[in-house]
Design a protein around this nucleic acid. Structure first.
Lengths: 146, 146
DNA sequence: GGTATATGAATGCAATTGCATCTAAACGAT
DNA sequence: ATCGTTTAGATGCAATTGCATTCATATACC
């Protein structure tokens, strides 16, 4: 229980710091970064919205509209999908790439202040390990998971 | 950096699980629980919105409207503040208490599944310690921690 | 081939959030 | 007492989110 409360609070504080930093720098919100990063990683081949949806744990309608906005800003392009007539393919634009690059130092700086400065390298590593246990779908605690 | 990413993901997953559990049980969202708990702790004396605001890291306008909704549901009552003509005092109602009590097992169960089941007691304790470092306003990395 | 079901994505509408601004009361200095 | 400033809280309006539903194509079954 205490772990959950602190988890929530730590995340809330760090997230607010990051969003503020981006906002102050007149840059888009953090989710945009995540989307742009995923889309950029997909290169020319692009990525399907439903893949993005799963990668980012975003609700379908939510992603649909987020892509609307990012597209309207000119950071990604939607194209009809050849293999699947229902679907589409998202590709990043040059403008999108440049915005993502500009977001990175601001994002990284905020994380450094919110997390890096507060933990030693070993502590950060330990935290990564513990949090990793929470994100796996596995049961986890007992050895012989059935 | 990796620590932040995992922190965000772990929180997101756990939060979604909790909100879903509450939703499935036809109970109000998690913030309502937090508010009700704080207000209930203040007993008859009540609590001022601005205190709540600081305790919960909520934006002022956000809290104002959240209290509107919780009040409309009949779970808290607003009263003019005697000592400060600008302010008010929030008190929980019997209905509010009972709802908070009904929320607890659902909330606790979701946390147990999202966190408790994935970590041993020692691991959970270690996580509490590490996350605590992130929520202190202090710089933190150097050894002199309180 | 024809119909039922499942999947990818969009959308109407209500609820919530964020931003900026506003009101009123308290404080502080004259 | 009066004026400027700060603090507590509310609110108009735009943007975002959530829910339910819709549309269109793909797949499975017969």
């Amino acid at each position: 229980m205490r772990a959950w409360v602190r988890l929530a609070k730590a995340q809330q504080i760090a997230l607010a710091a990051i969003e503020n930093a981006l906002n102050d720098a007149d840059l888009p919100p953090l989710v945009w970064y995540d989307v742009l990063l995923e889309v950029e990683r997909a290169k020319e081949k692009g990525i399907r919205p439903f893949e993005l949806e799963r990668a980012m744990l975003l609700a379908q309608y939510n992603l649909s509209r987020l892509l609307d906005r990012i597209e309207r800003a000119g950071y990604v392009e939607r194209a009809a999908c050849v293999e699947d007539g229902r679907g589409q393919v998202i590709r990043i634009t040059e403008l999108g790439k440049s915005v993502r690059r500009r977001m990175w130092p601001v994002y990284a700086g905020a994380i450094e202040r919110a997390v890096g400065e507060k933990l030693s390298a070993n502590e950060a590593l330990a935290l990564v390990g513990l949090l990793g246990r929470l994100t796996t779908p596995e049961a986890g605690k007992s050895a012989g998971g059935a």
